[in-house]
Write a protein that binds this DNA or RNA. Structure first.
Length: 306
DNA sequence: CCAATATCTCTAATTACGTCA
DNA sequence: TTTGACGTAATTAGAGATATT
């Protein structure tokens, strides 16, 4: 599965740096600001300035409450907090199960509630939050920088947006899923077009083969002049279906695909582990997709093939 | 040191809500 | 006004990693 990225993505964000003015101060022990923190700060600054013009008073109230509830550091160095509820549960020695705590978080008891939730029914019904354009823009910008969040980033972002950390987490999960789905669609389209192209190529080669056979049949006299020489025999490579002349003199076919000892450049290993002959490598996906070991690393690009 | 347990985060699949044509 | 499609927030289940007991 995916390795945990907490250490590599650690912002060094200090929640204490969240000032009441809404500015996000990010600092590392070295004093350098990470790219993610810088992006968050600038994006949040731009978008939130507009947002705050409308909802500053209410947001401040929320953020103050959130800051009071959410301090992941108080739980110790190693265990990160996902929700204020779980933090509270742990710090109070609560032995309730994970599901219980998740239920608690969902129902919002003791946690931070968003504007939308405040207006929701309290009967436990699933009330769907609609993220504002500004919230979505901030999340989107952050996603561009990093598709995953460490706990500190999550809490900081949640605080800034007036959302629960869980909501930020869910948004990133769904965003990754959408990205992957889109990439899959792109890949699917790409493969479809390759398939069509190969079918065309196959047709062309079969026609070429038929022509050659016709040519051979039409000129039997020249073949008869050299009856002992089967050099004109045409064979087709079972793998790539290319036509090749066979050298029967030594009962050795002209090898279309030199066996495994061939130079590394002669064969590329596909993702499935099969060997693709070098002259069959007009399907680049067989090669370059091996480098895409993870979806996160696969950029959503339309390959320029045609 | 090792096993059991707890907790976290992730993906994948699914559900359900809100919007819009 | 109703309805179906669609986008997406939220839920669920299960797996892997890591810390704690």
């Amino acid at each position: 599965m995916m390795p945990h990225q907490s250490s590599s993505l650690d912002l060094g964000l200090s929640l204490g740096g969240l000032t009441s003015q809404g500015s996000l101060s990010s600092s590392t022990t070295s004093g350098a600001i990470s790219p993610w923190a810088a992006a968050l700060t600038s994006v949040v600054g731009d978008v939130m300035a507009r947002r705050d013009a409308h909802a500053h008073a209410h947001a401040q109230h929320q953020h103050a409450a959130a800051a009071a509830m959410m301090d992941p550091d108080h739980r110790g160095a190693m265990r990160a907090s996902t929700s204020p509820d779980s933090a509270a549960a742990l710090s109070s020695g609560d032995s309730s199960s994970k599901r219980d705590r998740e239920l608690l978080e969902r129902t919002g008891s003791g946690g931070v509630r968003s504007d939308e939730e405040d207006g929701a029914d309290g009967a436990g019904g699933r009330k769907k939050l609609r993220l504002s354009k500004d919230q979505a823009a901030v999340l989107e910008e952050c996603f561009k920088t990093h598709s995953t969040l460490n706990p500190k980033q999550k809490v900081a972002l949640a605080n800034r947006l007036g959302l629960r950390p869980r909501q930020v987490e869910v948004w990133f999960q769904n965003r990754r899923a959408r990205t992957k789905l889109k990439q899959t669609e792109v890949d699917c389209e790409y493969l479809k077009r390759w398939c069509e192209r190969l079918a065309d190529e196959n047709k062309r080669l079969e026609k070429e083969l038929a022509d050659l056979r016709a040519l051979k049949a039409a000129a039997p006299s020249s073949a008869a002049a050299q009856p002992a020489s089967p050099a004109a025999t045409l064979t087709m490579c079972p793998s790539c279906r290319r036509v090749a002349a066979a050298n029967h003199q030594h009962q050795k076919q002209q090898q279309c695909h030199p066996k495994s000892n061939a130079s590394p450049a002669a064969a590329a290993v596909t993702a499935a582990g099969s060997v693709v002959p070098s002259h069959c490598q007009f399907f680049p996906a067989a090669v370059d997709r091996t480098a895409q070991s993870s979806w996160n690393a696969a950029p959503l690009v339309t390959r320029e093939l045609f």
